[in-house]
Amino acid sequence: MECALKVQNLSMDFGGLRALDDLDLDVGRNEIVALIGPNGAGKTTFFNCITGIYPPTEGDVLISARGKDRLERINGIKPNKVTEKGLARTFQNIRLFPNMTVLENVMIGRHCRMHAGILGAVLRGPSTTREEKEAVKDSYAILEKIGLAQFVNEFAKNLSYGAQRRLEIARAMATEPFLLLLDEPAAGMNPNETRELDELIKQIRDKEGISILLIEHDMKLVMSMSDRIFVVDYGRKIAQGTPNEIRNNPVVIKAYLGEEADA
C-alpha cells in the first residue's frame, strides 16, 4: 500500500525517562489507523513528536504528501511547517480559540494557505480581497460539511462540548491536510455524539481522501472504524494488526487488564 506516514525507530527521552522506545508505525493512504494503549503509554507524546512540538531523540518521521512518491523526512522542523506540509492535528484537551467566532477559528486553519502580508492587508488590493473572500467561503463550506454551519458567528467557547470537538476537526481540515491526527476525538462525548463522530471520520476519509491516525479509548469506536490498530505500552509497541487480531491478542489483554495472579 502507498504510504502517507512512516515512523521509524522513534525514541523520545525526557531527561532520564524514555517516553517512547523504538516505535515503528505507518499509515497508508486513505487508511484509518488507531493508536491505543493504557494511560501514560506515550500516545500523545508520539503525536507531539510527529507534529514537531518535541524534536524526537532518535528515529525518523517520514511523510509523503499526495501526488508525491518520495518520502520526506520531517523530524525536527517546527510545528507550523509540519502543518504546512499537510499534517493537521487536534488536541486531547480542546484547544480552540475561545474568544474568536466559529468561522474565525476555521479561518485560522486557512492561514497557512493564504499569503497576504501586512502591506497587502492594509492596502487591501484585489488579490487580498479575493483571497479573503475565498477563505470565508471555504471555511463556511467546511463548517457545512462538519455540521456546524448554524453556529458560524457564535463564539467558540459557547459551543457544546461535542460541537467544540467537531470544530477542532473542522479547523484542522481547513489546513488542507493529507493526514489528520486526532487525539481522543470522542473523549467526553455521549453515545449519540460518538456515533455521529464515527460517521464523520469515515466520511472525511472516503470523501476527502484524508488518511487518519487517531488515539482513542473508546474501544467500540476504535474497533468499528480502524483498518489497523497499533498498541503501545510504556512507550513500546506491543502489538499491531487488524481489529480482530488485536481483540484476541493475549499481550494486549494483559496490558489492559493485568496478569492473573497465578499465571
Partner: peptide, 10 residues
Amino acid sequence: EDELACQAMG
C-alpha cells in the same frame, strides 16, 4: 488565545 494550537494550525 492559544499559542500551541496557533502553531499547530500553521
